[in-house]
């Protein structure tokens, strides 16, 4: 050994040190990882496009060993427009609790998704890395900008079935009872008219009327190229109607089919928008919207009064006007 190291005891010591440091460094990392606490939280609620949202990573390390290189891998994406991978390296200081604030600047609306994938710890010599699974999923709605419509559209209501229709064996029913008849096998127990049945010997069931309502029906026909404008128009129109104390419906087409969502206040409008951000997450550029055709098929071409929001315009079917 002396010949190899050329009579250099300090070099020998340094080489021994390097050999010793490797497992020691790894040991320290393995000892410290279980006690480190890392948590990701939303730092802000829903924001408007153009404002900054935020993610907060809370880090706590009660051990005396500082972990200088903790690496969090996460994906940041807008549900409607895609995203990219990120990596943030931070230190978990010994005996301390801290926060790392990640502001996310927004420009367009959508659901801002923070999807953490893994956490990697590197040892002191930056040679070994230990990756542990780390799941954190945060959604922050980014609402469209509150714009005002250039001019107030002339709108007409559409005749649509009431939400309170109840299905029965014979078809769709409403709350309005058309007649009371004898029980037939297959009738639902909830349709039994118990009061009258108790008075007689036979079991009587209720048969309902179909009911129809009249309200504003909004149909957002979202296409990638006009996404933001259409969402802003929808939001502006929705707010306008609410300001007039006019509830309305918005038709959504998801994988399950058509769904009409009732909006009666701002909260419901915001919830609706959040749903839309997820429902239309698959929207792709260059693909035209077929929503109107689907809507017409569903309502047997009875679309009078429908308010379409399409390609940056608001089209009022009732008046054949565009805004």
């Amino acid at each position: 050994m002396a010949a190899l190291f050329y009579r250099q005891p300090l070099v020998t010591v340094l080489i021994l040190l390097m050999i010793f440091m490797l497992p020691f460094s790894l040991f320290l990392v393995k000892y410290t990882i279980p006690v480190i606490g890392i948590k990701a939280e939303s730092g802000s609620g829903a924001v408007t496009a153009g404002a900054a949202a935020g993610i907060v990573i809370k880090v706590s390390n009660p051990s005396p060993v500082p972990m200088l290189n903790c690496r969090l891998f996460f994906e940041l994406r807008n549900s409607l427009r895609g995203g990219y991978d990120n990596e943030v390296v931070f230190a978990a200081e010994a005996g301390k609790t801290g926060e790392v604030k990640i502001p996310v600047l927004t420009e367009y609306s959508g659901m801002l998704i923070f999807d953490a994938k893994a956490l990697e710890y590197r040892d002191f010599l930056d040679i070994f890395s230990i990756t542990v699974p780390f799941k954190a999923y945060i959604e922050i709605p980014v609402l469209p900008r509150e714009t005002l419509l250039k001019e107030e559209p002339m709108l007409k209501k559409m005749t649509v079935e009431s939400d309170e229709s109840v299905e029965s064996a014979e078809g769709e029913l409403t709350r309005d009872v058309r007649l009371v008849r004898e029980y037939r096998p297959g009738d639902r127990l909830k349709d039994v008219h118990w009061k009258l049945s108790a008075k007689g010997d036979d079991i009587l069931v209720k048969e309902y009327e179909r009911n129809r309502d009249l309200y504003y029906m909004l149909l957002p026909e979202l296409e990638y190229e006009y996404l933001e404008t259409d969402l802003e128009n929808l939001y502006a129109l929705g707010r306008l109607l609410l300001s007039r104390k006019e509830p309305y419906r918005v038709a959504l087409f998801s994988e399950e089919g058509l769904e009409t969502v009732k909006v009666e206040n701002m909260e419901e409008l915001k919830v609706l928008l959040c749903r839309m951000f997820m429902v239309y997450a698959g929207i792709r550029p260059g693909v035209p919207s077929m929503i109107y055709e689907q809507f017409k098929r569903h309502f047997n071409d009875e679309t009078a009064g429908l308010i379409r929001i399409s390609r940056g315009r608001i089209i009022s079917e009732g008046y054949r006007e565009e805004y």
Partner: peptide, 15 residues
């Protein structure tokens, strides 16, 4: 911002 509608801003800590 133009491509994804969002971007990461200036990260900071509480220290």
């Amino acid at each position: 911002l133009n491509a994804f509608g969002m971007t990461v801003g200036d990260i900071s800590t509480d220290r």
